[in-house]
Design a protein around this nucleic acid. Sequence first.
DNA 1: TATGAATGAGATTTCATTCAT
DNA 2: AATGAATGAAATCTCATTCAT
Lengths: 186, 186, 186, 186
Amino acid sequence: MSDKRHAILDATLTLVAQHGFHGTSMSMIAKAAGVSAGIIYHYFDSKDALMIALYSDIKRRLGHEIIAGFADDMPLRDGFRWVMLTFLDFYTRRPHETAFVEQFANSPYMTPHLEAEFADDYAPVMALIERAIHEGVLKPMPFEMIVIFTSDIALTLAKKHTAGLLVLNDALKNLVIRACWDALTI
Amino acid sequence: MSDKRHAILDATLTLVAQHGFHGTSMSMIAKAAGVSAGIIYHYFDSKDALMIALYSDIKRRLGHEIIAGFADDMPLRDGFRWVMLTFLDFYTRRPHETAFVEQFANSPYMTPHLEAEFADDYAPVMALIERAIHEGVLKPMPFEMIVIFTSDIALTLAKKHTAGLLVLNDALKNLVIRACWDALTI
Amino acid sequence: MSDKRHAILDATLTLVAQHGFHGTSMSMIAKAAGVSAGIIYHYFDSKDALMIALYSDIKRRLGHEIIAGFADDMPLRDGFRWVMLTFLDFYTRRPHETAFVEQFANSPYMTPHLEAEFADDYAPVMALIERAIHEGVLKPMPFEMIVIFTSDIALTLAKKHTAGLLVLNDALKNLVIRACWDALTI
Amino acid sequence: MSDKRHAILDATLTLVAQHGFHGTSMSMIAKAAGVSAGIIYHYFDSKDALMIALYSDIKRRLGHEIIAGFADDMPLRDGFRWVMLTFLDFYTRRPHETAFVEQFANSPYMTPHLEAEFADDYAPVMALIERAIHEGVLKPMPFEMIVIFTSDIALTLAKKHTAGLLVLNDALKNLVIRACWDALTI
DNA sequence: TATGAATGAGATTTCATTCAT
DNA sequence: AATGAATGAAATCTCATTCAT
């Protein structure tokens, strides 16, 4: 991928995290990326398309980080722990990405159709969940409840950490992972 | 409070829930509220002030709904259940308010200073939590963890219900309340 | 109609006649009309809508000038002469309107649907033509041929007069009116 | 002439006929012609120069078609008929060229100086007209009147044919040729 | 209180043209 | 002779806010 495209995405991420979608103009992005305003439209069709591309990018990277530590025959509990730690890690180490994702997810940009595009990137996680259901480890509950007690909790927690409302040390990580495991399993 | 002020807040709520902050202009609000564009500035200093006023309004109303069912000498578990049910109810019955609050909370409008203003409206809940800590019922954890396993979980769940990703029936409500109680208590 | 709306239409007419659609920017129009750029969008939805409104305006005014001299029981030949003289007069006395109409008619703005909107303004002329057909004065020919040998010829002639390619004096007017009458009648 | 130059002119013709000057960008032309945007500037100095070159091209081709059927000693009436038929043919068979010429002729591109450049291409027609004047066949009238009752009428008629407003069959062609001959001759 | 015309800055986007390769 | 990324000015249009009435 071209250097310039990357610089544009990078500048967008930082600026939106700080100023929001509304507060981030295309000329601000151009200036921060060190490119001309016009060239952004060579790489992205519109401001909206740029935002969507950036969201996709982040989701994909997060998916890769999760998959990276996966083994097919991992014990369920280890898999769950790895997923939670990766989420917590990503969301705390990358506050800009996290802020962007949160804004995006609660904006009119977000559509179910878009979300479906990342299925491949999270396939191993899905496989893990299906294995857990099959082995009768999980309480019977809708799939989205599992999302809540993994990704959503991790995101919320990391945001509060970044905001300085709590300190996400190892003890708290363990506490949350344990709490969520207890919440999900029989 | 004047009828017009109320109409403006109402129109703003609906429009922002549908189109986002960015997609909601003052003239759209004026038209939807059936008032002139100029008069909005009689009731609110600026667009930002209007948004902040609306957020305060919603938070206050939510606080009142929670307090309404409170008794000082309520058993802890009953108090917890009431709080959870009220959150779940409010967030599912009022999807516009919920969407607005979520967008607001993840936007540059939000400041810790602002959040502190609602302390009074949630005082009885705080008292309940302090009683629980004092009685040694809760696991030792930062205060914000308690927020996560009550308000934040309820909000996330209600959003998924509104989005049609799951159905929040009584069984699921009980399941979540139980899971969160288990997560928080020793 | 408001003064400002009129000033905008007036400025647009002059500028487009001189510089063409492409060469006439909204800010040029605003400056020439002595208004701010934004207010144009209070009166017209878009640049296109402004151009279409101006075209309609001119067509309507031309229609009124023609109708003004009409009597229902006019001899056909007098009616024809009046129509031709009015066209020639309008197109020579109003070179800006003429240049604008010509550009508009040969641009993508023009649609059959739009043209149909002026039927009412030219109804008496249509009635005259129908009377001529009914009385068997005209050669059998498509309606548009009649347009060619009246309006279109007059426009072309006036343009050449304005361009200095010929001088449209009374003698030439009579010659053309006679030539067109001969072309159309049996 | 190079293939690429030809492809560029061809693409420009089609696009301008459909979208107008304003609606036709250099990159649209490049894509339609299957060349890079930059190379257009190797063949033409600017967008304006390209448009002018295309106009010249069309006028020259039309001139050639007319001359092709000419004999110096042709009877006047046959010459006139040939000229009219060629105009009608060209303008109906080549609607893109016709639309382009019309737009161009009514745009700021057009200058008398430019028009004078085609004198050579239409020299035999001019000779025919001079012969007609010399032989006393024509009514005394300005030269441009002759243009109106030949080229301009043919163009207008063909445009209406292309627009579906009338059908230009042999009968109508003969009617028009006769009408114009009558209009011009004593 | 209330209107809505008016402002003017600024937003997104387009596009003719250039230039390193 | 050819590419297409890059520029930067300018275009259209929006919008929070003001103000005469």
